[in-house]
Design a protein around this nucleic acid. Structure first.
Lengths: 199, 199
DNA sequence: TTATTTTTCAAACGCAAATTCAATTAAACA
DNA sequence: TGTTTAATTGAATTTGCGTTTGAAAAATAA
């Protein structure tokens, strides 16, 4: 019916998720109160229950939003017409760009096991595993096309994603390192791991 | 005076810290209750206040214990009589060994900003920075001795520690990958980042 | 044994925070 | 305009949990 109304609701939901992500990132899930999330939006906490079932639901949708975007981004890279080396580089840079420019959104995703009840956990874990597989795919392709050294793709993927995900722990938008600089350096150094030994 | 008594208290404190670390690791700081920590030791939660001032104090001492051991270990490696390459390899392996064999202890240290009030935070951050500097030191030494490529030590350190610290997020003692395997693979691949280009 | 100190416990306190709800206001619509 | 529906509110409810406390039990000393 009223698509205008639906749009308004969607917008409001997005605003709430943004606010929630910010506070979650700062204080952690259990450390944030519904009141804090509401305060940023000049709302009362009660109002939020009109849009989201409960606090868990809020966290779940934060996670889902980030994962959906991330997977979409990397999937586009995979489907593109580039060499595995370029794909890996682009994927690393895309991840870092997102992680630094949307720091709070990204931080929310840490430790799903600690924050989620069993209702939401499986879907979140599934999305994660999907993202992991995208990286694996690029690595396997690189080895098959003989661009990469014959590495253990699982290990390399865990190293890469570890390094990338840890950025959230120390990156500060107001710090001296820009997302751009991190992006360039990380891509260059991480790619060295899959370089073929020259002889 | 009675050193026997002191020993008994120290032992009890250690037991409590162990239990606390286990639950913290599983549920996160804010997600664990004093009751759960006590239950594992067949104590009542009240009793724990005889040994620790409060919940924060518990977390703080968990952190401190891990950091003290970690720093000691890596410092010994630095002071030893080995090449930078060997030192870096040993440091990586030592970190992984500790992180996998004492998973819960290690997990506790995540996100100090979210868990600690300002009282304890500075000391914890200081210890962390000390640990970081140890890695930097090895890297700088390696470059000076011309064993490593002229890399950006800060970036390399952050990549390495990121990859290592992220292990906690996915490692499972009962999983197929042993700490030993991870250790070997990670050390080998990460060292490739500082390899001098051969020509 | 009795006296004294250390350790443990169970119950109680107090508060913070998630959720509910009845009532009010605003928006949409006819 | 009046009527219906959507959105917001602030207070009330409830629950969970950190911490306190005073007394009991255990250990130690005399």
């Amino acid at each position: 019916m009223s698509s205008l109304r639906e749009q308004k609701i969607a917008k409001k939901k997005a605003e709430i998720l943004r606010s929630a992500a910010t506070v979650f990132a700062e204080k952690g899930y259990h450390g944030t109160t519904m009141e804090e999330v509401a305060a940023k939006l000049l709302m009362t906490k009660g109002s939020m229950y009109y849009y989201f079932k409960n606090k868990d639901d809020l966290l779940f949708h934060c996670n889902k939003m980030v994962m959906d975007i991330s997977i979409q981004t990397i999937q586009d890279i995979i489907d593109s017409d580039q060499s595995p080396t370029e794909k890996l580089e682009k994927a690393i840079k895309a991840h870092i760009k997102f992680a630094t420019s949307e720091k709070s959104m990204f931080m929310v995703m840490d430790k799903p096991n600690q924050n989620f009840l069993d209702d939401y956990l499986p879907e979140i874990l599934e999305l994660r595993s999907q993202y992991d597989k995208c990286f694996d795919q690029i690595l396997v392709e690189g080895i098959e096309k003989d661009e990469f050294d014959k590495v253990d793709t699982k290990m390399i993927r865990m190293i890469i994603l570890g390094a990338l995900n840890w950025i959230q722990q120390w990156y500060k938008p107001e710090g001296q390192l820009s997302g751009e600089e991190i992006s360039e350096a990380f891509a260059a150094y991480l790619l060295k791991m899959v370089d073929k030994p020259q002889n």
